[in-house]
Every structure is written in structure tokens, then in C-alpha cells.
Design a protein around this nucleic acid. Structure first.
Lengths: 233, 233
DNA sequence: GTGTTGTCAAGAGCAGTGCTCTCGTTTAAG
DNA sequence: CTTAAACGAGAGCACTGCTCTTGACAACAC
């Protein structure tokens, strides 16, 4: 019951795709709060109520866009990972971070939708969680591979992960298949949040009047946070 | 022409204050996009159009709330700084970061308003920038005082700040009166973005199903990023 | 004390929104 | 061939930000 059952189902799938396509384009220009079902309907020569045959509510459309967004950044990250030299772990770390930032700069509204403030009243369903880990899996793999190659060499004198978060680290380790010591898991988590935090700061205007050499600054941030994990540049 | 000129001006100032007060309360429950001028007017027994005598548009109300938000976090940070032991620089760093997170957890919508995705179509006026640096000034002061006391001791082997961002660092140094070497300025910037990035991740749901021991994890993040700058715990 | 002037709340109205319901029509399954 | 499900269209509800006009009232000048 998969491919092209009836003509109706085919046109239905096509319409759903067209709706999300137009919605994504409008999202790029208007932003999440400016995304209007009526406008989407108008653009495809439909009447607004017809949209509800395909998406029960505006939130469901948003959910579809969020999943698409996670998938897009996941794919970009996977591509950057695949293009890198398997022996150059630090290079891959840098490449993946750059890829995230590049995607974010190209799709600011989509980035804001998934990594920015949640839309009020909108409750992210479980479906979005699965799509959300795609990039994190790559992060974890890079760290794990570097660790298994024995080239992870963090600077001395960093705080050890406290016992209180050992459970979290263990669970995180299991989720992303990250076979490295606690301290490394914790620092990878910190670096991960730091990278996205930096991208968000740049995108959301916090670097206005502060950082102008964005490319160089981002690379330096990624290198510094990478050193935290143990990559050597 | 400052204090209580005419009765008219007094009641006007009072009404403006009442509007922002109600708006802030509604913001806390409904979020930024759900903030409605009509609802605010209804709550104070006014007709919607009357609000426009005091705020020319919804965006102007938002601006007022944003400035109030920056001021609130600035005050919280200043208070945490003042309450700390002047000799314990690392302790102050930790206290200030904790204060930010505590405020953010108490006022999630206000935090989202100032540090989350920008409201589409809303252009932050220059007034907000001045209020935005209050917390950063304290950050800079803590680092500077620690440096001048000669207790800043970052771990070895961290990347040096590239020449490309020297101009940015110089300007930043001037803005926040931060008399420390380039490398420290850069790392303070990275740590600063990392702290806010972590708070945003927690608030915006990225730690869902990942980090459960939020307090301990945050403290560890702050300690690790603090070590980056050179604080010793 | 009397005008004049500017500020004010109120109300109607415009264009837009998400969403629901009903109505004929089309389509696919039994 | 019949029947039930899916569909597009349209009207309608309650809501939004915002504009414009109207009439009342307070602050000032004379």
C-alpha cells in the first residue's frame, strides 16, 4: 500500500507537498507568525477552508515545516561530514559547524522556527524529536571517531563532570551511540550548545554593533569550543 | 519641566505605566505573538483605540517591554554582582550566570522576547541597544577585575584570537571598558554566548529528553566556560 | 470669567486572521 | 450501479491591528 494507489491519493500527496512548498516559501519572506493559511490558499488558487482537508490546523502545517527544517539541517550536516577527510576529525568538526551556520544564514526564518523561541500555544509533537537528532548523531560520531583514533587531547585543568549529571550523560551516550568518557560527553554537549548559541546570537541580532567579522569570529569560536572537546587545530 | 507638571501629564504617565504593566502580565501568559492591544485595553476598561494615544502602534508597546526586559535582567545581574565577594571572581562569574538563568526561568516569555527569535516585521530601535549592554558591562567588569588581580589562568593550548577579529575585539573592549588582552576578550565573548546559548537551549526545549539535571548541568557548563576565560574553581 | 486650543475616550469601520459548518459535486470502493 | 467517503466552495464567527471621526473636557490665554 505504498506507491500510487489511487489517483485521488496521488493528487492528495501532491497537494500536501505543494502546500508545504508554498508555506516554506512564504515562511522565508514573512516569518513564522506571518505565515497565513489564507495566503497559502490564495497563492494556489484555493479557498482557505480547503486547506483544512490536508492540514487540520495551522499548527499541523507548522509541524510539517519544523520536521522539514530539522531534516534539511540534518542533511546539510551529513553532507558536510561525508565530504570531509575521515582522518581529519578536527576538520570535520569545523566543516560541520560551518555547514550549520551557512544553512542558518540562508534560511533564517526556518532556523528561527526550530531553534528560536517556541511559537506560543504550539506544542511540538513527538514526531519532531526524531528528526531533531539527525545532526546531533553526526556530532557524536565525529567525537567518537576522534576518540577511538586516540587523537582527542583536551587541555588540562578543565572541570570534571559532576556526579549529578552522570545519569544524563549515560542516557545521552546511549541515544547517540557515543562511546567516550563522561567528561568528553559533557564537553561535547557544552560545545554543541555553544555552537548553536553562537549561530542564534548572530541571527537574532545580539552581535549587532559587536561582531562584524562574522566568519572569522565563528571559526574562532568553533575552534575554541572544539579544543574544549579535545580536537587539535 | 520634570516632576509632575500638570495633572494631565501625571495621569498620562500613570496610564502608560499601567498599560505596560498589564501588557507584561499578559505577555507572561500569552507570549509575544499573543499580546493583543485590544485585550490589554479590555482589561483596563478602556476602548482599544484609546491605547493608541499612548502607544502609536503595537510595536512601540513591544519596544517598551523589550527595554523593560533588558533592564530587568540587567538589574538582576548587577544585584548578583554586588552581593558577591569582591575577591572571589570565579564565584561572581558563577553567581551572575545563575542569576541570568533564574530570571529566564521565571520570565520565559520576556526572555524569549529579548533573546529569542526576533518578532517578524519588528525592527528594534536604537533605544533597546543601550539597555542591552547592562548585563554585558557586568560580565566585562568581572573578567577585568580578575585579570587585574592577576588570577586569570586559562588552560594552555587554546587557539589564539585570529588577527581578523582584532578590530572587533578592540571596539568591544572600548564599549565595555575591558582592559584585558585580545585572547581573553575573545574567550569572554565565546563564554558569554555559550551561557546564553545554554539558557536558550533549556528554555526553548532543545534539552528535552536530553538533560534532566538542569541545575547541575548548567553549573558545569558555566564552570567549563569560566575555565575557558581563566577563572579557577 | 470667557474663549480657544489641544487632549482624550469612544465608536464605527477596514482588511485581515484561524477555524467551523453546510452545501453540492466528484471519486472510489463494494 | 449504488453508496459512502473525500472534496472545493462559500458563508459565517470571533478575533486581530489600525484609522478616522465625533463629541466631551481640561488647560491655558486674555
Amino acid at each position: 500500500m505504498s506507491a500510487s494507489r489511487t489517483a485521488r491519493e496521488r493528487v492528495r500527496a501532491e497537494l500536501i507537498h505543494e502546500i508545504t512548498e508554498i508555506a516554506r516559501r512564504r515562511l522565508a519572506t514573512e516569518g513564522a507568525t506571518g505565515l497565513s493559511l489564507r495566503a497559502v490558499a490564495r497563492e494556489m488558487g484555493m479557498v482557505s477552508s480547503a486547506i483544512y482537508r490536508y492540514f487540520p490546523s495551522r499548527d499541523d502545517l507548522l509541524t510539517a515545516l519544523i520536521i522539514d527544517g530539522y531534516d534539511a539541517v540534518g542533511e546539510v550536516v551529513e553532507r558536510a561530514y561525508a565530504a570531509g577527510d575521515p582522518g581529519d576529525h578536527a576538520g570535520r568538526w569545523l566543516a560541520v559547524c560551518r555547514a550549520i551556520r551557512a544553512w542558518a544564514l540562508e534560511h533564517p526564518h526556518e532556523y528561527a522556527l526550530i531553534y528560536g523561541s517556541p511559537v506560543p500555544g504550539y506544542k511540538a509533537p513527538e514526531d519532531t524529536v526524531r528528526a531533531a537528532v539527525r545532526d546531533t548523531l553526526i556530532f557524536a560520531r565525529i567525537v567518537t571517531e576522534a576518540h577511538e583514533a586516540g587523537v582527542l587531547d583536551p587541555p588540562p585543568g578543565l572541570p570534571a563532570a559532576p556526579a549529578a549529571i552522570a545519569g544524563d550523560l549515560e542516557r545521552g551516550r546511549a541515544i547517540v551511540q557515543m562511546n567516550v568518557p563522561d567528561d568528553i560527553v559533557a564537553r561535547a554537549l557544552i560545545a554543541w550548545a555553544g555552537v548553536y548559541g553562537t549561530v542564534s546570537f548572530e541571527l537574532f541580532g545580539q552581535f549587532e554593533n559587536v561582531v562584524t567579522e562574522r566568519d572569522a569570529y565563528f571559526d574562532h569560536t568553533v575552534a575554541t569550543l572544539g579544543r574544549l572537546v579535545g580536537f587539535t587545530f
